[in-house]
Amino acid sequence: MDRIPILRMSEFLLVTIQVDMHDRLAMALQEDLTDQIVRHRSHGVLIDISTLEVVDSFIGRMIGNIAGMSRILDAETVVVGMRPAVAITLVELGLSLPGVRTALDVDKGMQLLRTSLHGTSNGAS
């Protein structure tokens, strides 16, 4: 079965969701990610959804779950790159991803994580 790759970027993990995910793929990602957070003692997770053309309640819930589980494992989640059309649609759907931080792109997401972890945006890598 295919899996969505998880990349290590300095102290953070980066997941780039590129495919139109079916449900099992989404579930597998949740498991893999929690594994990796623990294994690498990561304190931040970036989920890049800039190529996603649709986010429905299922993906929304998955993102929420990842954020929730990460928090328990002492890692922060930042969702980056949501497209305007997707954002407008999610608001209409009624999904506001409470408790999930967001940023315009991966760079800004990293800055955000660094600032909140080290109080500075160019933390040592």
């Binding site: 649709v54 429905d56 309640s57 299922f58 059309a85 997707v86 407008i88 649609t89 209409e92």
Partner: peptide, 17 residues
Amino acid sequence: SLVDQTKMVTAASELAR
């Protein structure tokens, strides 16, 4: 429009699921 496409696809995804 792109937004309308996205709305319809998202609604379809919800109901299909």
